[in-house]
């Protein structure tokens, strides 16, 4: 009987400690989650902003590339024109 009583007390104590611990853990997770959510939102916002910046940079790089490509084409065309004019000037 004494053994059974001691066993019951031990079980009860374990149950109270466990539930307190679980409760404590549950409270802490919620707070951290909210903080984490805030951080995630901030990071997402930063990422979105960075993405927009990257897209703008990409667009500018693409534009610069097009300009360079156009300049290169014009340079080659000028070289071709110059070459042809030179060739023709050498005709008899």
């Amino acid at each position: 009987m004494k053994v059974n009583t001691q066993h019951s007390i031990r079980m009860l104590t374990l149950a109270v400690v466990s539930s307190a611990f679980i409760g404590l853990t549950g409270c802490a997770t919620t707070a951290q989650f909210e903080e984490l959510q805030t951080k995630i939102n901030a990071v997402a916002s930063d990422a979105s902003s960075a993405k927009a910046d990257a897209a703008a940079a990409n667009s500018k790089a693409s534009e610069a590339l097009n300009i360079a490509d156009e300049a290169n084409k014009r340079s080659l065309a000028t070289e071709e024109r110059l070459g042809r004019a030179f060739n023709k000037s050498m005709y008899k």
Partner: peptide, 14 residues
């Protein structure tokens, strides 16, 4: 009289 044309395709066949 146009020496820079030497080494090019510039004549009328000569």
């Amino acid at each position: 009289i146009k020496p820079f044309g030497v080494g090019m395709r510039v004549s009328a066949g000569c």
